[in-house]
Computed example of a mutant assay.
Amino acid sequence: MSNGSNELGGFLRSRRERLTPEAAGIAPGGTRRAVHGLRREELAELAGVSVSYYTRLEQGASSSASDAVIDALAAALRLDPVEHEHLRNLAAPRRAARPRSRRTKLRPAVRDLLAAMSAMPGVVIDHRADVLAWNRLGHALLAGHVAFEAPEERIRPNIARMLFLDPHHRGLYRDWADKASVTVAALHQAVARHRDDPVLEQLVGRLAVESPEFARMWAKRPVRTCSYYVRELDHPVVGRLTLANETVTLPDDDQQLGLFYALPGTPGADALALLTRSCAETLAKENMR
């Protein structure tokens, strides 16, 4: 994975190459263009900065930029609010290095809340997509092939790692490409917010090496944020089902609570009821051992 400066330059370059001269309000010239998007000098002029300064930003020779420059570049590149915020994070000066816990902690109250929601699949992940905890139904829905206690192990289950490297988890998503894109985008944003996290860097590096699909998606630098999805799943126990997936950000070191649900009377609700009974039977058998 690139360092912070190169991440900034890579993001700027990807958005510059995406923007056509017509979309940027630049009249087409008479000569054939060597690039698909804007030239560096064209973007620099639109943003009101020198070509040499912009080139240093894109090449990683300058590690930060003022808010005014970032706002001007975001406007020139036609960035949406999420992309604009991501650019701000990438361009922010690095804080003084501080030791970062290699293992994210979950508040006991959040663990209790998750367990209390026994009728709704739930999972809590951190900024690395590590699973910090799941309730019984969340575990059965997302990863019944691994141990329920796996989040307590030294190496926790990781949603991104399972999505790209675990065929059992990958096969769960009928809409895998969309789920993968959302996951890669979330990791990109996490890297911008946590540039002092070597564990996150190692995760991205491993995925880029072991999954060509991840490497291709990562190179495109997707950035998007959405708290609500409709997921099309193909579950090994209850078959095909459609569930809503709501994601709630917790005020605890960049953690997220993911909840899955279906409206009463829908096939998804029937499938969840079946999965709930299956969980109860499995738990009863475990308690009898």
Rank of each mutant, 00 (worst) to 15 (best):
R136Y: 07
P167D: 09
L132K: 01
A177T: 14
H127M: 06
A177V: 14
D126C: 11
A190G: 13
G122L: 01
H168G: 04
A185Y: 07
D166P: 00
P198N: 13
A129L: 11
H168T: 14
S118T: 11
L132H: 07
T104A: 10
A186N: 11
T104F: 00
W134Y: 08
D126P: 02
L113T: 09
Q202F: 06
V146Q: 03
R170E: 15
D196W: 01
R170T: 14
L132I: 04
R111L: 10
M162E: 02
E149I: 02
R103Y: 11
R174V: 12
V124D: 01
D197S: 11
L203M: 08
L114M: 12
L203H: 02
K105M: 08
R154H: 14
N158Y: 05
S118G: 10
A177N: 12
M162G: 12
V146K: 00
A119S: 13
H188T: 00
A140C: 02
I125R: 02
A129K: 01
D112H: 13
A116R: 14
V110R: 00
R111E: 12
P198Q: 09
R111T: 12
N158S: 03
D166K: 03
A116I: 06
P121M: 05
H139G: 02
S181K: 11
M120A: 09
S118F: 10
Q202R: 15
W176G: 05
A186L: 09
L187T: 11
R111N: 14
H168L: 12
A129T: 15
H168S: 15
A119C: 02
A143Y: 03
Q189G: 04
D112E: 15
L203I: 15
A160S: 11
V123G: 00
M162V: 05
S181E: 13
I155Y: 09
A140T: 06
H169D: 05
A116H: 12
A177E: 15
L165W: 03
P198Y: 09
V110S: 10
R193K: 13
T104I: 01
I125V: 15
A143P: 00
V124P: 01
S101A: 13
D196M: 05
V204S: 03
R103H: 13
A180E: 01
R103N: 05
R195A: 12
D112P: 02
D197M: 13
H127E: 10
V131S: 07
G138A: 08
L137G: 02
D196A: 09
V124Y: 03
E149N: 06
D126N: 15
N135Y: 07
V199M: 06
A185M: 03
R107G: 07
A116Q: 14
L141N: 12
R195H: 11
A186H: 15
P108Q: 11
V191N: 00
A160F: 03
